[in-house]
C-alpha cells in the first residue's frame, strides 16, 4: 500500500514540478555549456578583466536558473527517494522511514557535489579562494547529510554488527 502511495506522490510531484524544474535545469545547463566552453575562452583572450566580467555575467545567469530549479528539484528528490529506498533498503529488512531518510541524504549529497562541480570552472575564474570556500561549505553539507543518514541507519548498522 505504501508503495502505491509513494508512486502517487511521485506522480503528483512530477506533474507539479517536473516540467518547470527540467526547464530551469535545461536553461542553466545551456548557459553553463556556452559560458564555459565558448564565452570564457573568448573572454580570456581579451584579458583578465573582461574574463572576470563575463564570468560574473554567466555566473549570475546560471545561478538565477539554478535557484529557480532547486526548490522543485528538492521536492522531486524527496518524492523519488522512496524508489531506491524500497529497491535497495526496505527489501533487505530496513524500516521504510529509515530507508527513505538514507536514500534522500545520499541523493542530496550527489546533487550538492554535482552542483559544486558545475560551479567550479566559473568560480575558479573569479578567484580560486572562492571555489575553495565553496568546497568547504559543500564538505560541511555532505557531512551533515552523512550524519543524518548514519543516524537513520544505526539500527541496521548495529543489527549487521551483531548478526
Amino acid at each position: 500500500m505504501s508503495a502505491i502511495k509513494d508512486a502517487e506522490n511521485l506522480k503528483r510531484v512530477f506533474h507539479a514540478e517536473g516540467a518547470k524544474t527540467a526547464q530551469s535545469l535545461l536553461s542553466a545547463l545551456l548557459i553553463w555549456i556556452f559560458g564555459v566552453l565558448l564565452f570564457l575562452p573568448m573572454a580570456a583572450a581579451l584579458g583578465s578583466s573582461v574574463g572576470l566580467l563575463c564570468t560574473v555575467l554567466i555566473l549570475a545567469g546560471f545561478t538565477i536558473c539554478i535557484s529557480k530549479a532547486v526548490g522543485g528539484f528538492k521536492k522531486l528528490i524527496d518524492a523519488f527517494a522512496a524508489i531506491p529506498a524500497r529497491k535497495y533498503l526496505v527489501k533487505r529488512g530496513w524500516i521504510r522511514e529509515d530507508g527513505n531518510v538514507v536514500s534522500k541524504q545520499v541523493l542530496y549529497s550527489i546533487f550538492v557535489v554535482i552542483l559544486y562541480l558545475l560551479y567550479y570552472p566559473l568560480l575558479v575564474n573569479v578567484n580560486p579562494a572562492v571555489s575553495g570556500s565553496l568546497l568547504i561549505i559543500v564538505v560541511v553539507f555532505v557531512f551533515f547529510f552523512a550524519v543524518k543518514a548514519i543516524r537513520a541507519s544505526r539500527k541496521a548498522i548495529t543489527g549487521w554488527l551483531y548478526s
Binding site: 508503495a3 502505491i4 509513494d6 508512486a7 502517487e8 511521485l10 506522480k11 512530477f14 506533474h15 517536473g18 524508489i83
Partner: peptide, 10 residues
C-alpha cells in the same frame, strides 16, 4: 515518465 513510474511501482 511519472505515469510510467507509477505503473512500475504498482
Amino acid at each position: 515518465a511519472a505515469e510510467e513510474l507509477e505503473k512500475q511501482a504498482k
